[in-house]
Amino acid sequence: MGIAGDAFGPQLPAGTRELKQERAVRTRERILAAAAQAFAAKGYPAVTILDVAEAAGMTKGAVYFHYENKDALALAVTDLFYRRIGELADAVEELDLSPIGSVAELLLRTATAFRDETVLQAGARLQLERQLIGVRLPLPFQGYTELITSWLARDRETGARDELPPPDTLATVLVSAFFGAQHISWVLDDRADLVERTTALVRTIIPSAEEDIQLCPSAPRRC
């Protein structure tokens, strides 16, 4: 037996180690899915580890084995939120839309995800409750705003829309309006109308974007 085996006990076969790792990953995914559902439905202060354990179908001890406390769960769910936003942005960039079309499509896909996906709903609520959470969460909206600014800057380089405000100003207005709209839509209609609100928002802030919006796969079709 090698030195590692002598010091730390017999080493598991590679296949067994991989199986244990895969099982641990699936367990963490179950826990985070349950935590996201609880945070989205009840808010951070009202959620307990027991709530998460029961929703995940496991014991509190099993949850604590993977996450030391509720703050760690909140941080992990927030990380999932930003990872999902990144996936949406990557998917939009692959579409080869116009810069304004990319902006509209990203906002529309984000609206759809907020409406349909628990992780985004949980992430949004945790951001609102960030002062109540005992760990530092990533600052919201920065990367999202920077990406939209870069697309608007590319559009400005074409000189086609000189009437628009500077890219950083316009990006800030769009992101502020969108995340305000998602909050209002959540409160009034459980986000059921968020895609329509987002479409109206882009049309109102960028009136010249109508042709770009019509080419967006996620845009509601006008009758």
Rank of each mutant, 00 (worst) to 15 (best):
P99L: 10
A7V: 14
E18D: 13
L108H: 07
T149E: 08
P10L: 10
R17G: 03
A74E: 02
A55H: 01
D116R: 04
L106A: 06
T27W: 01
S150Q: 10
F114Y: 13
A55I: 00
Y67M: 07
S98T: 15
T118P: 06
G57F: 11
T16M: 12
V77R: 00
R136E: 08
T78N: 07
P99K: 13
F114C: 08
Y82A: 09
E94C: 11
Y44P: 03
Q11E: 13
R84W: 01
Q142V: 15
L97M: 11
R26S: 05
E18V: 09
L120C: 06
A72G: 03
E22D: 13
L106I: 11
A38K: 06
I31H: 02
G123P: 05
D51F: 06
V52F: 01
A62G: 09
A4I: 06
F114L: 09
T118D: 02
Q127T: 14
A33Y: 00
F65G: 03
A38D: 00
Y144F: 07
F39M: 07
K42T: 00
E117M: 11
R115Y: 03
A35W: 00
Y44T: 02
A113N: 14
A4K: 09
Q21V: 12
L97Y: 04
T110H: 04
A104E: 03
F141M: 15
R23F: 03
L88F: 02
A122V: 11
A38Q: 08
L95R: 12
